[in-house]
Design a protein around this nucleic acid. Sequence first.
DNA 1: TGTACATCAGTGAACGCGCGTTCACTGATGTAC
DNA 2: TGTACATCAGTGAACGCGCGTTCACTGATGTAC
Lengths: 210, 210
Amino acid sequence: MTDTLGSRQERKQRTRQSLLDGALELLADRSLAALSLREVTRHAGIVPTAFYRHFDSMADLGIALVEESMLRLRHMVRTARRNLGGDVITKTVATLTDEVLSNTAHYRFLTAERYGGVPAVRSAINTELRLFTAELTVDLARFPGLRDWHTDDLRMTAELMVNSMLAYVMTLLDVDVRRPDQVAEVRATARKQLRLIMLGTTQWRPSTRG
Amino acid sequence: MTDTLGSRQERKQRTRQSLLDGALELLADRSLAALSLREVTRHAGIVPTAFYRHFDSMADLGIALVEESMLRLRHMVRTARRNLGGDVITKTVATLTDEVLSNTAHYRFLTAERYGGVPAVRSAINTELRLFTAELTVDLARFPGLRDWHTDDLRMTAELMVNSMLAYVMTLLDVDVRRPDQVAEVRATARKQLRLIMLGTTQWRPSTRG
DNA sequence: TGTACATCAGTGAACGCGCGTTCACTGATGTAC
DNA sequence: TGTACATCAGTGAACGCGCGTTCACTGATGTAC
């Protein structure tokens, strides 16, 4: 090994990252369950056995990808939360659209593996999404008009919003990005759907049971 | 072959069906991309090469499973449409819940492969779901209060409902069915979410643009 | 600064295994006369 | 009803291939003195 510059630790970290990046790239048209360890190492330019210096298994690598992807998502939300003035819905959908289109691989991975075939990865994604929904629930509680809502109803609403936006993400990823008209169309639909949900909350009677 | 009774054609049909049934059973904890042709034939009690008498490839079998699953879904909706009087939302969620819980394998397959790794299957599911949403759009157009809506807005609403109900199906499939309290909880949330959407439609201004 | 030793990321050969697909076949069922 | 031939669902041997994982190794980097 006369790789490049950096300490041994730094070079190890770099190899680990190229395993993650390569795997994500290969996952563009495949599911994790259909991706082999050998393919990932070949793509990263190391020998198959060296994989084990970085991950216990492909599922382990998958979980690392979940963490990496969810970090992006959280970071986006934190940024979005900072400049919310004006039309919240339009801004939210715009931020989400930009984020997804500039990190398609991560979001394709998240949405595909959410109900995919590797139990440990699936479970990691759903745990993270539950935390994410909980954060949105807290955000919603601060909205005028929702301040006196039951937590249950807030959570139900947050869940509906998260699921709708994830459905939007999936649709967006299937659209041909070279067709801006199609992007605009699914984007308009996403905005309308959020608007419809918000309109629903103005009519919600907290006493309504199930 | 001294199988059992029936014409040659009938016995062929029976083998085909046992390939489909066996595959669906094996897909309980795996994605289609991770299921091998040999496994399916082994489970159906035939030799691997005989597979090709029935399907061109595993993707082809997957598409047959999509058709079978979507038939169930359509049949359920047709039944539900017939006795709609009373609380439409409660009845709809009840029918859907019963249907999903008594055909878990089909619905697990549909939801998992919708964004799964086999392009042809994924595309077949999305085509079917688009038709399904179009049917719901027509149903919605007949609702009092929605009669003068634009088709675009009706489609947007139908899509939101279908996506929410599919998210419910996925959640329901992950719940331990021996915990009736948990089933009741996710079911109540599904009902509330549909109710919230319906309440939103009462406030929707058709002039609202995206 | 120089030396001796420890660490450890990456190597390369080897393994046994299940895979999809080919091919020529068998023998029960179906059909024509 | 009986015979001769065609059809075709399922068989079984064989193939080459990529897979995950084991193991003993190498040699550059890091550390102790």
